[in-house]
């Protein structure tokens, strides 16, 4: 087992912000921590990273207590920033040095990642007249480019465990794809990643195992595919020629949404969908699309967090 978070509990006064959170990462890949704002994701990540003390529980990495200052851990925090007045190269070398990287190796990594993230112009000084050089400071960079520099800081030491808190927030589609490709590369290299995000499609794209938190409590946990299978194929997407609303009502099915092109219907079990399809054929209604699929993570998330909130 690579990472074990066992029974983590954090309180601020009487308020429990993280309530007995446990999860483990056994194989390389991406583990997702999901939750609404204030659910306890960042608190959990900070506890994993040893920044916050906590009342109960323990965190181990490869069988030993996790200490990010000695283990090779990379971290991209949710709220990002750099030293505004210092040059980018100085900052990169500083953070590499804090990871005990030799200067030569640090420079090689900086060169690689600068090219990969397309920020060479900002990392290396451009020559001006009279042999003067222009060094970029962080405050002269756009938000997206600052985000690239921060990702570079997290990746410089080639970490075994990479913790990414909302890695794609605020990025344009081009840079978002660039970040995704880098995350994919890290997965292929056999790295362990923990990711927190509000973008459910991103989680579905990368993550195998998830934990959904709500107000500090774990409301759902497990392998994403297994969870989805557990729900069954309950979403029916149907496109036909003609009005089929009377038939849907006749079967007592719940209509989730309707667009000019498509019906989204919730079915209790797959057999109901088969019966509906048989009926449409009998009625000789041309069926253009008939898709039966599991709920999306978005739906599961809304359902789980909504249910817990309703119960409370």
């Amino acid at each position: 087992m690579a990472l074990l978070a066992n029974d983590l509990t954090k309180k601020y006064g009487d308020k429990t912000v993280l309530d007995h959170l446990s999860f483990k990462i056994e194989e390389p890949g991406v583990y997702a921590l999901l939750g609404t704002n204030g659910a306890g994701k960042t608190t959990a990540l900070r506890i994993l990273l040893g920044m916050l003390n906590f009342e109960e529980g323990r965190v181990t990495w490869k069988g030993k207590p996790l200490d990010p200052t000695t283990s090779n851990v990379g971290y991209l925090p949710e709220e990002r920033g750099l030293y505004p007045k210092y040059t980018i190269m100085d900052q990169l070398l500083y953070f590499a040095k804090l990871k005990n990287m030799p200067r030569k190796e640090a420079k090689e990594k900086i060169a690689y990642w600068s090219e990969r993230l397309d920020v060479e112009d900002y990392v290396y000084p451009s020559k001006l007249k009279k042999n003067k050089k222009k060094f970029y400071t962080a405050e002269q960079l756009s938000k997206g480019n600052q985000q690239k520099i921060q990702l570079m800081i997290a990746l410089l030491s080639d970490p075994e465990l990479l913790i990414l808190d909302e890695p794609l927030s605020g990025l344009d589609p081009v840079n978002s794809d660039l970040f995704k490709s880098i995350i994919r590369e890290e997965i292929n290299k056999g790295k362990y990643l923990i990711m927190s995000s509000h973008q459910m499609p991103v989680i579905e794209e990368f993550c195998e195992d998830i934990t959904i938190l709500n107000r500090g409590k774990t409301v759902l946990q497990g392998n994403l595919n297994e969870i989805k299978k557990g729900y069954g194929r309950v979403n029916l997407f149907l496109r036909c020629e003609g009005d089929i609303l009377p038939i849907i009502k006749e079967y007592g099915l719940s209509l989730v949404s309707q667009s000019p092109m498509e019906y989204h219907i919730r079915v209790e079990e797959e057999e109901t969908a088969t019966l509906l399809l048989r009926r449409l054929i009998e009625e000789q209604i041309p069926v253009i699309k008939f898709e039966l699929r599991e709920p999306s993570l978005h739906e599961i998330f809304v359902e789980k967090v909504g249910v817990v909130d309703d119960e409370e």
Partner: peptide, 8 residues
Amino acid sequence: LIEILLTR
């Protein structure tokens, strides 16, 4: 930045 520093 302190969050990054505290991991190192």
